[in-house]
Nucleic acid binder design. Sequence first.
RNA 1: CGGGACGUGGCGCAGUUUGGUAGCGCGCAGCGUUCGGGACGCUGAGGUCGCGGGUUCAAAUCCCGCCGUCCCGACCA
Length: 569
Amino acid sequence: MRLSHLFAPTLRDDPSEADVASHRLLLRAGFVRQLASGLYTSLPLGVRSMRRIENIVREEMDASGAQEIRMPNLLPSEPWKATGRWDLYGELLFHVIDRHEREMVLGPTQEEVVAPLVASESLSYRSLPLNLYQVGWKYRDEFRPRFGLLRVRELLMKDAYSFDRDEEGMRSSYDVMLRAYRRMYERLGISYAVVEAEAGQIGGGINHEFMARADVGEDLFVECENADYLADVKAARPRPPDPIEQDDLRPLEVLDTPNTPTIDALAVFLDIAAERTLKTILFDAGGQTVAVLVPGDREVAEEKLEQLLFPTPIRRFEDDDFAERGFAKGYVGPQGMPDDVVVIGDHSVRAGKDWVTGANETDHHVVGANTPRDFRVDRYEDVIEIREGDRCPIDGGALRIGRSIVVAHIYQLGTKYSAPLKATFIDEDGTDQLFQMGCYGVGISRTLAAAAEQFHDDAGLKWPKVMAPFDVVVIVANGDDEEVTSAAHSIYADLVSAGLDAVIDDRDVAAGVKFNDADLIGYPVQVVVGRRGLKLGSVDLKLRATGERSQASLAGAVDAARRLWESAP
RNA sequence: CGGGACGUGGCGCAGUUUGGUAGCGCGCAGCGUUCGGGACGCUGAGGUCGCGGGUUCAAAUCCCGCCGUCCCGACCA
């Protein structure tokens, strides 16, 4: 490829709309252009890099026994209503109306396509397990697209779906995918972590996220200072603090605390630390009232509570609920909870005593609330939102919170989709059985952006070689010199023959521009052919990753470039 | 959806306060000189100043409405 004819317009200045590094550099280096908020056109360089990622993903999928298919993106709405995701996704789902006034959706993921597809073939248990995947566009009407390619409305994703006879089979298919995904990200060279995660709108049980570390990441994960523990903040379970002896207790005493419906106001009014107070958060769980107790400086992790009470849906009390069920909003305490209220205490509640908490009467709190003397706790669970400094569940070390970009997510789905969609196979005994499903997604475009976040410097991108748009660039340093030009073209041709994906910068611009663009675009290896070197019969080479420069003879240029490329990260 | 900022040739910006013939740098085209880390000179092309209304003799500039882009947030006992 000749750079003089490649559609790769580089920008000298940072585009004004780009804030984060990956966005800025992918625009500047000519990989993408923006069409509208959250929508990008991939230019030739972008297509090349993404295709390389795709191909690694395909190789690992194929090697794992998965089979590539291609599904439509414009989808009928009925299956989405059947699975409940029409409502669950809500505004996130792009809706389309066809000329016959039929409601369609643009697929945000394709369980609703692949499950009916497989179901319609009356498969025998003998043909399982089955794993089908595709690489395609996904549509999500994001609340706020941002950070360039990191959160977009149209994204390139590899999505795979496994179908098994039973749970054991599903788990085994899941493990195969987990291993394939690890190999993918090892090969891609991205610094990543696999964490236990929360299921979100895809749902199901066990699931893992592949997180690429990045300062701009929207997703938080926790990491222990010394043990090998990683988890999504929403799923992380800290080691509970040690319970303390519940003795030497002070008596329960009611205090006048006017206008203190919040912990902050209460702490200020009484001049005490927020952690001395006990919060009682009320939920409705299918008609049942659930009271959750956490120290005043902590928050309830609703996802954890949801999981705890699954499949009963939970909902935090709204204003009306307090009045209807006889609670004093802002002054709720656990004392004298009616028997039909389930009281769940976070483990951390056992590490405190003589609590300051609501008196169940407006403008009043109590001090010296203790269990079981003054209130009961039906069960102790982990229902707290994690915080920096909480203790690691493995070795008790301090947990710290890091930012990351979720680049892949895999799920065990069970029958969550096969049941509502009646996706069955014929079992050994001739009966119809529901598939046990798993689903496995890789954000291709996001992986590219995450890599750009991890691999760049002031001069530009520094791609790992497996996802660089080209392996090597041949820079013609003196375009006016016939000898230089012909030597460069000859080296370029030999590089191509040697199997390297090469590009020659034959543009009629100053050498400095070529050097800067080469650094900006991030070709792993640069070969510079110029008058200065040719006089000595040599060419110069540069490894972008390290900036390390070397020389080679004209005759040895191709071999040297090849070796340098092989040594590149 | 709430808050904030911005919208002027392809890119980055000035001009708006105080209305009076639309500018600068880069890029682009032509010619010449240059030629190993973003060269120089000369010439030139390219803009309904986001869109629509209004005020005015006159609007990029003032007023009203809309659209778009980016950033922050959407939460509590």
